[in-house]
Computed example of a mutant assay.
Amino acid sequence: MSNTRRALFRSAWLPWALVLPQLLIIFVFFYWPTGEALYWAFTLEQPWGGGNAWVGWQNFAAVFSSEGYWHSVRISILYAASTTALAIGAALLLAMFVDREVKGSRGYRLAMIWPYAIAAPAIGIIFRFVFDPRSGVFAFLNQAAPGLWDPTLNGDHAMTMLVLAGAWQLVSYNFVFLLAGLQSIPRGLVEAAAMDGAGPLRRMRDLQAPLLAPTLFFLVIINMTDSFTHSFALVDVMTGGGPARSTDLMVYKIYSDGFKGLDYSGAAAQSIVLMLLVVGMTFLQFRFVERKLHYK
């Protein structure tokens, strides 16, 4: 006999009434905008109104033939890969310290969760102030070596500042998953490796990292997706896409082309491409990761 319990409702409309608010939210904030973007992507939207003209794949051809768009794709991949590697590496190191129950580790568990609750614009303002070349530590460095650090003029400096802010934002999220993964590993295996003379780094490389592989792959997909889609606020507050479009990421280029350049159709086509990219990453997660994760 199956132990599965099913919820039974006496009224046929009650289940629909319970899920209706969520369905409305999904429709209003996802399906409706997606449908509008699809319509605009295949039509020519006039900047000041006046109707739409069907142009087929013309908007996508214009996007893919633009060197500026491919530049945005390249720096977006660079930003996403750098942010993901730095955020997961830092979170793994912190999770190892807390997992070993070093002095003050319980306080770290609580403190490490807080940064994820801070809004992205606030993070951008904080990091922009910290890395300001005219004040603080970097002002002294620029006095000693003029031009050593200036993210307002140097694109590499601006991207570095942006990557550090994005990674700092994601460390807390990664820390929770990695700490849970480390604590799910049987202590007997870790203690046996320690008794055989394996140090912390050797245990992590040969024992813990392989067991954490599904969690790490899951975090890579989530971090990459977040970096592609949730970087707008950081870019808008910290760099505005500059200097010289060196931080004009895909999600910010959609905004700047659509709302500043008034190219609504081109921006809609770019948004569809970005959505397909995110859908592809989600497919990889469920296709190759979800089947290897086992919950008890």
Rank of each mutant, 00 (worst) to 15 (best):
W54Q: 04
P121E: 06
N142F: 08
G35E: 00
G56D: 06
H71Y: 09
T43Q: 03
V63D: 00
L94G: 02
G89I: 08
G68M: 00
L141C: 13
V28W: 01
G56T: 03
F140R: 15
P146E: 13
V28D: 05
L78R: 04
N52Q: 11
W48E: 09
T43M: 02
F42A: 04
G50C: 07
W40A: 01
R106P: 00
S135R: 12
Y108D: 03
I75V: 13
G124F: 14
L94S: 10
P151V: 07
I26C: 08
A117R: 03
T43P: 03
F138M: 15
R106Q: 14
W40K: 10
V130Q: 10
R109G: 01
G147P: 09
P33F: 14
W32Q: 14
W114G: 00
Y116C: 00
I25L: 15
P21R: 12
S76K: 02
W70I: 01
V130E: 11
S105K: 04
L20A: 15
P146Y: 13
E45S: 08
W40F: 05
V130R: 09
W57G: 09
R74Q: 13
R128D: 15
G136I: 10
A87Q: 11
W149F: 12
P146V: 12
G89D: 02
K103P: 00
W57N: 02
F97R: 11
S76V: 07
F29L: 12
R106M: 12
V73I: 12
W57F: 09
V28F: 12
Y31T: 14
F129A: 11
